[in-house]
Design a protein around this nucleic acid. Structure first.
Lengths: 361, 361
DNA sequence: TTGAAAGCGCTAACAG
DNA sequence: CTGTTAGCGCTTTCAA
C-alpha cells in the first residue's frame, strides 16, 4: 500500500477499473474522456485513479490508436542560435496541439541525418521537421514521405519534391546586400557559408533551393546589374569546422588581391569570421566591411555594430510547425505569418580604402 | 506489391515471417538479433525484411520490453545558448547509447515544468534530465524519482533530495569576482539574474543549491573579507522578461548612488544589460564595469571584451547524460569530466570614477 | 533450433 | 450507459 509498492509497477486501466469496481472499458472511457460514462462511474474512476497514482501510458495509447503525439525535429547544429530560436517556435506551436518534440542533432552530416530520420520513423513520430543538410541527397526524406509520414522542410528546399517547405525568400535582400556593397565601392566580395557541397563553388553551380543559393545569386545579380566583374572564387562553402573556416578566411584575406568585404552566412559563421579578422588586426569597416545574415542581439552590441540581414527565425519555426500540424489534420490559423528578410544597415560597411586592395598591408 | 501498397500499412514481424516462410517468433529473433536462429532462417528473414521495407516499431518494442529508448530533457529556455550547448552535450552522449532526446521548453515556468515532467513520464521516457526552474518546488521531481524513474538535475540542485545533480561549483570563481571588483575599487556591485524567487532578494535569503546562490554568496564573502559594507539590495532576481530586466537595471543605474559594477548571471542577461547600458550612453568600463557568467564567442568580440566566468557547458551536458545513463544501467567512462569555472579577465572592469558614484551624471 | 501462445496497456467495435 | 472481446506489433516463456 505504500509508495514503494506503487513504484514497482505503474497502475494500469485494469487496476483502476478493479479499484473502482467497474469494467475496464468504462474505466478507460472515463479516464480517456471518450464514449459515454455516467456521473457516478466517472467520479468513482477518477477517485480510484487518483488513489493509485494512475498515469496513462502514452506508448500503449499511440500503439493502439496508431496516432503518436510526438514530432521529430532534425537540425544540423542546435548550438547555432538560428536553430535554437526556430526550435522554440516549433516547440511553442506544437505544444498547444498536444505534441512533444523529439530532437536530433546531425552535425550537418548526411549519414547522421539519414540515421536520424530512420530512427524517428521507427519511433513512429507523427511527422518530421527537417533542416536538411543537403539539397540533393534527399531520398530518405522522399521515402519517409512515400511511407505516408508528414515531412516539412526547414530553411532548405528540394527541387522537384512535393514537400512543404518553410523558408524565407532572400532574393530581394540578397540583391540589396550586393548593391549596398557595390555602391559603397566594393568589387571583391567574399561569402562564407557552412553549407556542404561536393566541390569548390563555381559560377552557375546548383546550390539547390537553399538560402545560400539565393544569397550568392543576389550578389551575382548586383554585379551584373552594375556591369562589374564578379569573382565567384570568393564564395567559400563547406566552412563546417574551425579549420575549414580559417582556411576560407585565409583564401579571402591573405592574398594579393584580398576581399574588401565579406558576407557571413549565419551568426555562427560571423562570430568566427570576426575572430579571424580580429586576429589579423584588421579594422572594420576601414580595412574590411562585414555583412552577416541573422540578426541576433550581439550583432548590435559589437564595435562597430554589424550590418545584417534579419529574418524572422522564431516565426519560421512556428510556420514549419503549423505546416506540419496542417498535414496531420489539425486546425491551425489560416493566415500565414509573413516571412520576410530585411537588411539592417549599421556600421560595418564602408568604402574600401586603397591600401586594402593592395598586397602586403 | 508496389510502394503504394507498402505505404498503406507498415510491414510487421508477422508479414516478414510469412514472406520468409518461418514462424513469427523466429522472424522476430532474427530481426532483433536475440535468441537462437539458424544461418538459413537468418538470411531468409533478412531478405524478406528488405523486400518488404520492414522497419521495427519502437513503440511496440518499448511497450513489450518495458524499456524505452528516449530520455526527456526539460530546460527553461532553449533560446539561451547555455542550454543549447548543454543540449548538444547531452545529445552527443546519449546517442552512442542508443537513446534519443525528447525536449521540452518551460519558459522558466514551474507549472509548465510540472506538466512537462508529467507528460514525459506518460511517454515512458527512460529517464529525465531537468534544469529545474525552482530550487524549492520540486515535488514533481521527487515523485518521478519515487515512481522509479531516473532523474538527473542540471545546473540547479535541491537540498535534501537524493538526486544526481550536475553543476559546477562557483564558490571560488564567485569569490574571485567579488575580490576583483572590490580590489578595483567597487563598493556598489549589482547582480542580475533571471532566477525566479518569491520576493526581492535580501541578505541570508535561501537561494537553494543554485549557481546564483554560489555567486551572490561569493560576492558577499569578498565584502566580508575586505571588511566592507555590502548592499544586498543590489541583487536583482526575477529578471525573466525584458521589462523586468529593464526595471532591474533602472534600480541599479538610475539612482542617487548607482551601482558602479554589474555582474550578469548568464549570457542572455548580459546581452540585455549591455543593451540597457548602451541605451543610457554609459561607457564600459569607464562609467560602469561589467562581469558576466558564461563565456560565449561574442563576449570576446565586443568592445570592450567582457570579463567573464567561463564554465564547461558542453561537458556539463555530457556529464548529466552520463549520470543518467549510469542510473539506467549503462556502462559509461568512470572518470568524471572536470567541471570547473574560471575567471577570464578581459577589459570590462576598471576602477570606478568619482563621477560615477555621484548623482546626476 | 523452432513454433505456439500469452501477454504489455490501451482503444475500439459490438452486443447488451 | 455498460461490459466483453479483440486486437496494435513486439518479446518471451514454454514445449517440442
Amino acid at each position: 500500500m505504500t509508495k514503494r509498492e506503487q513504484s514497482a509497477k505503474e497502475a494500469t486501466v485494469a487496476d483502476v477499473a478493479r479499484a473502482a469496481g467497474v469494467s475496464k472499458a468504462q474505466a478507460a472511457r472515463a479516464l480517456g474522456g471518450y464514449g459515454a460514462v455516467s456521473e457516478q462511474v466517472l467520479s468513482l474512476v477518477i477517485a480510484a485513479a487518483e488513489g493509485l497514482g494512475y498515469r496513462p501510458n502514452q506508448l500503449a495509447k499511440s500503439m493502439t490508436t496508431g496516432r503518436s503525439n510526438s514530432i521529430g525535429v532534425v537540425v544540423g547544429d542546435i548550438e547555432n542560435a538560428h536553430f535554437g530560436l526556430a526550435l522554440r517556435g516549433i516547440s511553442d506551436e506544437v505544444r498547444d496541439a498536444g505534441y512533444t518534440v523529439v530532437l536530433v542533432n546531425t552535425d550537418e552530416d548526411l549519414a547522421n541525418e539519414v540515421a536520424a530520420v530512420q530512427e524517428l520513423l521507427q519511433q513512429r513520430v507523427a511527422g518530421l521537421i527537417v533542416a536538411p543538410c543537403s539539397s540533393t541527397d534527399t531520398s530518405h526524406l522522399e521515402s519517409a514521405q512515400a511511407h505516408g509520414r508528414a515531412v516539412v522542410l526547414f530553411d532548405r528546399g528540394v527541387r522537384g519534391l512535393a514537400l512543404d517547405t518553410v523558408r524565407v525568400d532572400f532574393a530581394d535582400a540578397a540583391l540589396e546586400v550586393g548593391r549596398l556593397l557595390l555602391d559603397t565601392g566594393h568589387r571583391r566580395i567574399g561569402y562564407v557559408s557552412s553549407q556542404r557541397v561536393k566541390a569548390a563553388y563555381q559560377r552557375g553551380m546548383d546550390l539547390g533551393l537553399s538560402p545560400v543559393a539565393d544569397r550568392v545569386d543576389g550578389i551575382e545579380r548586383a554585379f551584373t546589374e552594375a556591369g562589374s566583374e564578379w569573382d565567384p572564387a570568393l564564395v567559400k562553402l563547406n566552412a563546417t569546422s574551425d579549420d575549414a573556416l580559417a582556411a576560407a578566411c585565409a583564401e579571402l584575406l591573405d592574398q594579393a588581391e584580398p576581399a574588401t568585404a565579406v558576407v557571413c552566412s549565419d551568426s555562427l559563421i560571423a562570430l568566427r569570421v570576426l575572430g579571424q579578422i580580429k586576429r589579423r588586426g584588421l579594422r572594420i569597416p576601414e580595412d574590411i566591411s562585414v555583412v552577416a545574415y541573422d540578426d541576433f542581439a550581439w550583432t548590435e552590441l559589437i564595435e562597430p555594430p554589424l550590418t545584417v540581414v534579419a529574418q524572422p527565425v522564431y516565426d519560421m519555426g512556428r510556420e514549419a510547425a503549423r505546416a506540419l500540424l496542417r498535414r496531420l489534420g489539425h486546425r491551425v490559423p489560416a493566415e500565414q505569418l509573413p516571412l520576410r528578410a530585411h537588411l539592417i544597415e549599421r556600421a560595418s560597411v564602408s568604402a574600401p580604402t586603397v591600401s586594402s586592395t593592395l598586397p602586403g598591408r
